[in-house]
């Protein structure tokens, strides 16, 4: 039995809309899942599947004119329970960064180009009413930047354009740690960085997660990164959560046809590459979704029932669940 002691946050039937002039775009549809306390949960999905939209809803940073249209988002912090979708704006401002922080997809643009790193760090501390002496502050900054293996003295005095992409990304991670949050959201934190820097940053994040016990939500399109760093994973497609479970179950059992397709289309540097297959067809157009299962037009397992109405979320019993009429059917139990 799950209790909210185990979870740091829970999404319950969350839908998110972008009301545009001519129509309303539903970017996230009826998503329910939990973020386990102390764990790294990844949401993997292709471009446009709704990762950034969903992640930003936690701290009310959805890009305009996006709004949570339905559902509940609850945070279970040290100071008690908080309904994030109902939190008044001023309370949300205090909450953001101190309880939940976010490393944005384009870290470059998240840093203010006319402030040095020291000025940005100081500004955020002051905005949250942290009253530290100058010495305490400097010690804290050095600590954090040392943690992400940066030369604190040099970096604190630098403007963003004086830092490389990998350095900026590490500054953003230090920034996210500034107010000792309980949950960090990482939106594609290493896209556009080379594999060596990527490996380094994820190793560091995992160390932060394990040592400080900070929960993490990682949004990515990279299946291999999920396998290497996450504990739990959700698979998104066309704004829906298609599958959710612990990483080993999701990878080895291949209970959902879309997940199986994604894994089967990801070449590995050491695995068998003779049997790789692309997923035929193209990603869904959110404004013209097919009737029934939205993956049906590309699904190798599709049958008549899939074209009738959207499949319900089916639970498997071991904590894994999936949106498919045949979820787990092909699972012979030996995949592990």
């Amino acid at each position: 039995m799950q209790t909210n002691r185990d979870n740091i946050a829970v999404f319950s039937h969350v839908s998110i809309d972008y009301p545009l002039k001519k129509y309303t775009l539903r970017a996230v549809t009826d998503i329910t899942f939990e973020l386990k306390r102390g764990a790294i949960t990844a949401l993997v999905g292709e471009s446009g599947s709704g990762k950034t939209t969903l992640a930003s809803s936690l701290i009310r940073c959805i890009s305009e004119p996006g709004r949570v249209a339905e559902g509940e988002i609850t945070f279970y912090g040290k100071d008690g329970e908080e309904r994030l979708d109902l939190l008044p704006d001023p309370k949300m401002r205090a909450f953001r960064w101190s309880k939940v922080s976010m490393v944005f997809q384009a870290a470059q643009s998240a840093l203010n180009p006319v402030l040095t790193v020291r000025e940005q760090f100081t500004e955020t501390l002051e905005a949250h009413g942290e009253k530290l002496s100058k010495e305490e502050r400097e010690a804290k900054f050095s600590d954090l930047l040392g943690y992400v293996k940066l030369d604190a003295e040099r970096v604190l005095a630098s403007y963003p354009h004086e830092l490389s992409g990998g350095m900026k990304q590490r500054v953003m991670i230090a920034f996210a740690l500034l107010l000792d949050p309980e949950l960090i959201i990482l939106d594609e934190p290493t896209t556009a960085l080379d594999v060596i820097t990527q490996n380094y940053i994820f190793t560091l994040l995992k160390q932060i997660n394990r040592e400080k016990g900070i929960s993490m939500l990682l949004m990515t399109h990279d299946i291999s990164v999920v396998a290497k760093f996450a504990d739990y994973v959700g698979v998104m497609y066309g704004g829906r959560l298609m599958e959710y479970g612990d990483v080993r179950t999701v990878f080895h059992r291949r209970r959902h046809p879309y997940t199986a397709g994604l894994i089967g289309a990801t070449p590995s540097i050491i695995g068998d590459i003779s049997e790789m297959k692309p997923i035929e067809g193209s990603p869904p157009d959110l404004l013209h979704l097919p009737k029934g299962c939205i993956f049906a037009p590309r699904c190798p397992r599709c049958s008549d029932v899939c074209l009738t109405e959207e499949p319900p979320m089916r639970e498997y019993g071991d904590g894994s669940k999936g949106k498919c009429y045949f979820f787990g059917e092909a699972d012979d139990g030996k995949g592990n």
């Binding site: 594999v195 291999s224 990483v247 080993r248 894994i263 990801t266 540097i269 050491i270």
Partner: peptide, 8 residues
């Protein structure tokens, strides 16, 4: 440094 798509 190359990530391998296998959690094990």
């Amino acid at each position: 440094a190359v990530p391998i798509p296998d959690p094990d």
